[in-house]
Write a protein that binds this DNA or RNA. Sequence first.
DNA 1: TTGAAAGCGCTAACAT
DNA 2: ATGTTAGCGCTTTCAA
Lengths: 338, 338
Amino acid sequence: MTIKDVAQHCGVSVSTVSRVLNKHPDVSERVRSKVMRAVEELHYVPNSSARDLVCAASDAVGLVVRGVGNPFFLDVFHAVESTIAEAGYTMFVQNIHPGEDELRAGAQLVRSKKLRGLILLGGCFDYNADDVALLDVPFVCCSYTNSFGNLDEKAYSSVTIDDRAEAHRAVHYLVKNGHRRIAVLLESTDDRSISELRYMGYRQALEENGIAFDEALVLQTRGYGMDAAYDAVCEALKKELSFSALFCISDSMAVAAMKALHDAGRSVPKDCSVIAIDGIEMSAYSIPTLTTLSQPKHEMGEMSVRLLLDMIEGHTANRHVVLETEPRRGGSVCRICD
Amino acid sequence: MTIKDVAQHCGVSVSTVSRVLNKHPDVSERVRSKVMRAVEELHYVPNSSARDLVCAASDAVGLVVRGVGNPFFLDVFHAVESTIAEAGYTMFVQNIHPGEDELRAGAQLVRSKKLRGLILLGGCFDYNADDVALLDVPFVCCSYTNSFGNLDEKAYSSVTIDDRAEAHRAVHYLVKNGHRRIAVLLESTDDRSISELRYMGYRQALEENGIAFDEALVLQTRGYGMDAAYDAVCEALKKELSFSALFCISDSMAVAAMKALHDAGRSVPKDCSVIAIDGIEMSAYSIPTLTTLSQPKHEMGEMSVRLLLDMIEGHTANRHVVLETEPRRGGSVCRICD
DNA sequence: TTGAAAGCGCTAACAT
DNA sequence: ATGTTAGCGCTTTCAA
């Protein structure tokens, strides 16, 4: 069932059918309705591959997400989506797995949909020049930047928070509240990614406050999931590890950590304070509400789109924007006096 | 940058490049490596639209999800994904918005990617024959079925739980624990969808147990979100509405409800028991752990794929599978003695 | 082992 | 207002 079948069915040419389908103005009402009826009757559905192939560059941009389902990404995603729509552009989304190559996926999307630009939501922190050469349109890295690579700053745009500084801020907040035995919950101290960056902030905050680093207080999980976080905290508690506060590299891990503390008979925040970075919806409904540094998710999405469209429309240069988190004071941190 | 450019760059024909790219056996090693090098150097990325257009029907099936980010769908999604991969098929995913037409979206996907079948994850409960005529491949509705439409059972497959019966079961469980003043938290009593079905189960359970229905105990929210659920419960509590138990149509709404109860000074389950249906990850980490009827998410995904592949490969008929939930005993329900 | 050429379904000039 | 036709980038016969 192709456009040709529809044309034959109506006794018109394929271009006429195409015109009707694309709402071109100069088609007689008689023909238009005849075609529409045929389309209905025959249950004709256009082949978008064929359409994409022939169409000139559209006003479309792409979004490659490394794991929708990540609640943090989801919020940014929605912001990107609505901002793009407001600007009169359309958007194509592609979800990829951790482990998949977001640049290659993006490049394919750009090629097949003739996109004008690309936003990458969650990706590697260590690109090099060859990796990004695949992309022949402007692109912006949203929520991450090239912290561990050697990519030229002028070759890409990014919108992030300063992960290291924000982690520092979170830990510093605990110190200001009298905590000295501060544990950290993370996936890895050297993943060349967000975990490592936030760990660096943790270390720095300890150092600046004259707190000796204790390896035992680094609670390493086997993944970013809640289950892994829960297990890691349980294990630490079983070992009678003593700490008065816990800095978690993500909200969801913090929620699981609070549950683990609770299940072990420790009250949050009385027996142990908990702080994190992210500010996802779920942690606003935990008991107690999680104290966290909330990422400006909406702003990040919006800003990413703005940078991209500026480049597309104004041919401006690549830029790097660093946003700040917004502290959300929950009930999971309390003052300690010793 | 097309296959033609690569061909010219190497001084070979496009068909040779195509062969190399598609790993055809009969290409000389010399030419193969020459082409590969050119592909690298030129950063050539194939245009998948062009490829899809020309390729014959693949071993690919589609998955249309109404809102990834819905944590329930996310789990099913993963199950579908891995099952399809195991079977040696590939999968194309398309996320759509509530409000968008999943059948049309599915039909387009099928057309452009030449899919062999389709799985719809979350869709309307009231199709009619004309709607599904767009689809010329077998399809299975996952997590919903045609409860409110007049579609012929033989025209489609489905994998679901019995929403009405499970809601009945949840409420009945509360009754068995001594509760009589049981409120329900839902989005709508007549949305021709999941909310309505679960509401029917609630009503039925009350009736069967000789409990008079009290309209005041129907807590209606302005949406499926946690914020809406929180607000609705807060409002009910402000009105001094008295109930000893609350049945929520979803886990996420239940978590928000527990928070609202907590913030109003009511202890769960001592002052109010809470039960729900879904069994998402988050509610396992709430305090207390939510008591819920957990949907067999993995099984649902797996079964959907199995039904689909059976139809594709064995040309078997459409089937309808109803699975049962698995009660997850948390700490949010307690016995009442009065 | 390689190249030439047809054609997938569609849109957009260009004719009429 | 409508039809004819030339590709879009690719795979795949068919010949050489």
